[in-house]
Lab assay of single mutants.
Amino acid sequence: MLDDRARMEAAKKEKVEQILAEFQLQEEDLKKVMRRMQKEMDRGLRLETHEEASVKMLPTYVRSTPEGSEVGDFLSLDLGGTNFRVMLVKVGEGEEGQWSVKTKHQMYSIPEDAMTGTAEMLFDYISECISDFLDKHQMKHKKLPLGFTFSFPVRHEDIDKGILLNWTKGFKASGAEGNNVVGLLRDAIKRRGDFEMDVVAMVNDTVATMISCYYEDHQCEVGMIVGTGCNACYMEEMQNVELVEGDEGRMCVNTEWGAFGDSGELDEFLLEYDRLVDESSANPGQQLYEKLIGGKYMGELVRLVLLRLVDENLLFHGEASEQLRTRGAFETRFVSQVESDTGDRKQIYNILSTLGLRPSTTDCDIVRRACESVSTRAAHMCSAGLAGVINRMRESRSEDVMRITVGVDGSVYKLHPSFKERFHASVRRLTPSCEITFIESEEGSGRGAALVSAVACKKACMLGQ
C-alpha cells in the first residue's frame, strides 16, 4: 500500500517536472537572447534605426563620474514606483581627507489618484512632500541643488532636461508624456511658492545606482535594477552614441532593455503563462523582457503555473481556492519566502493557508518547484541581457580580458534567497573573457542622484555659470 502511494507521488512529481521543464533555458538559448539583445542595442544607438529599435539606448548626458572633490548639501528625489523618497545628502571631506556622503531620508507613498490623475496632481503632491521634508529638517530658507531620480523612459536633451516617452509600472498621470519632466517639477514648486529649489540633474535609477557604486569602486561602469521592473545602464564610447554629437570619451546610456521583445525577438521563448500575464497587464505587448524578470510579474506567473497544475490534477487534489483564482493573489514576496523555507515546509504551508488552501507535504514541495522554475528562468533571462552589455563593452574597448564592476539594486536581487547566485553564475558562463565584480548599492537611487548633481554643480562652477 505504502509502495503504491510512494509510486503515485513519484509519478505525480515526474509529471510536474515535465510541465515545469518549459521554463528551462539551455545555454544556447541564452546565447541567442544575448546576441539578439546586442543587435537591438546597436539599432538603438544608431541614428537611422533608433526610432524602430525596441531597446532605445537613451543617452543620459552623464559623462563624468564623481571624483571626490564636490562638497555641499544636496536634496535628492526618487520616483520610480508607488513609494517616493526625499533625501538630504551631505557631501563633504571625511576623516583623513576621505570623501564622505551622509544621508537623511523619508519615504512617502503615492496615492492612487496622483498616479493615475493628471501630471499637475502628481507633481503638486511631490512638491508637497518636499515642503514637508524641508519643514522637518528646518531647511526651507536654503535654496538647495536638487537631483531627481526618475525611473521611467526619458529622452534627455541635457542633464536637466528630459522628455517622458511613456509611463510604465502602473503610472498613468495624463499630460506628462511628451513633456519635460524637470519643467513639470519646477512648475509645481513655483505653484507652491513656499520654498526654492535648483533642479540641476535628472537621472534614471540605473544611472543613480551606477554612480553610487562608483563611489565604492571606481571600476563600476554598469548599473542595473532588478526590482519591480528590470533595466540597466553602462558607459558607452561616445563615438557609438549617434544621437549625441561628439566622439570623445564616454557617456552613460540608459538601455531601457525592459522593452526588448516588443518587436518579436522573444516570441519563441514566451510561454502561455507569459501571454496571460501580458494580456492582463496595463501595457499589453510592451516591456516583454521586463515581464519575464521583474517583481511586478513574478508572483503572478507562479500563480498561473499553480492553476495549470491544479487543472492537471497534480496539486491540491485538483481544487483551487477562490483566493488562488484571484489575479495578483500570489505576491512576489511569497516566491522569495517559499524558496527561503528551511525544509520543514512550515513557511510554505503558512503562505498557502493564507490563500485558503490546506496543502499536503507533496503540495508544498511542488509549489516550491514552481517558484524555483519561474525565478530561475528570470535570473537566466536577466543574465543574457547583462552578458550582452558586458561583452559589447569588452569588444568596443578591444580588451582581451576586461575587469568590470556592476552596481545592482532592486528588491528581487536583494531579497530573493537564490536569485543573485543563479544570476551571477549564468552571467559568468556567458562572459568567459571578463572578470566581473557585483556590488549592491546602498540607498543607491538617492545618493547617486545627489552625486550626479554634485558633478553638475562642479561643472557649472568651472564653466562660470
Score class of each variant (00 low, 15 high):
Lys169Ala: 12
Gly162Glu: 13
Asp247Ser: 07
Leu243Trp: 03
Gly294Ser: 13
Met381Trp: 13
Ala460Pro: 11
Ile211Leu: 04
Cys461Tyr: 10
Ile19Cys: 09
Gly448Gln: 12
Glu9Ser: 15
Val101Tyr: 04
Ala387Lys: 00
Glu177Gly: 07
Val389Asp: 00
Leu415His: 11
Arg447Leu: 14
Thr103His: 04
Gln286Tyr: 12
Ile225Phe: 02
Arg429Ser: 15
Gln337Gly: 06
Met197Gly: 01
Ala173Lys: 03
Tyr297Ile: 14
Gly97His: 11
Arg422Trp: 14
Met251Thr: 13
Asp194Ala: 10
Val222Phe: 02
Leu304Glu: 02
Tyr413Ser: 07
Arg392Lys: 12
Ala53Pro: 05
Asp3Val: 06
Thr82Phe: 09
Lys15Thr: 10
Ile366Trp: 04
Glu331Thr: 15
Leu306Met: 15
Arg394Ile: 10
Glu96Ala: 11
Glu40Asp: 03
Gly343Met: 01
Asp409Thr: 10
Asn204Leu: 04
Ala450His: 12
Ile225Gln: 02
Val305Ala: 03
Ser321Gly: 07
Tyr61Arg: 01
Gln26Glu: 15
Val241Gln: 02
Arg358Phe: 06
Glu279Asp: 13
Thr431Val: 12
Val182Ser: 09
Gly193Trp: 09
Tyr61Asp: 00
Pro284Glu: 14
Leu164Ala: 15
Ala208Thr: 14
Val408Leu: 09
Ser151Gln: 06
Glu399Ile: 07
Asp205Pro: 07
Val181Gln: 06
Val310Glu: 03
Val89Ile: 09
Val338Lys: 01
Phe171Ser: 09
Glu157Pro: 14
Phe269Asp: 04
Leu306Trp: 00
Arg303Met: 01
Leu146Arg: 07
Ser54Asp: 10
Arg63Ala: 00
Lys458Ile: 12
Tyr349Gln: 04
Gly44Trp: 00
Phe260Thr: 03
Ile110Val: 13
Glu421Lys: 08
Leu77Val: 07
Lys12Phe: 13
Gln98His: 08
Gly446Pro: 15
Lys31Ile: 13
Leu77Ala: 04
Phe23Ser: 12
Phe330Thr: 09
Leu386Met: 12
Thr405Gln: 00
Ala384Val: 07
Ser54Arg: 15
Glu319Met: 11
Ser375Cys: 07
Val199Cys: 05
Leu276Gln: 14
Gly162Cys: 12
Lys414Pro: 10
Gly246Lys: 03
Arg327His: 13
Ser64Cys: 08
Val199Ile: 07
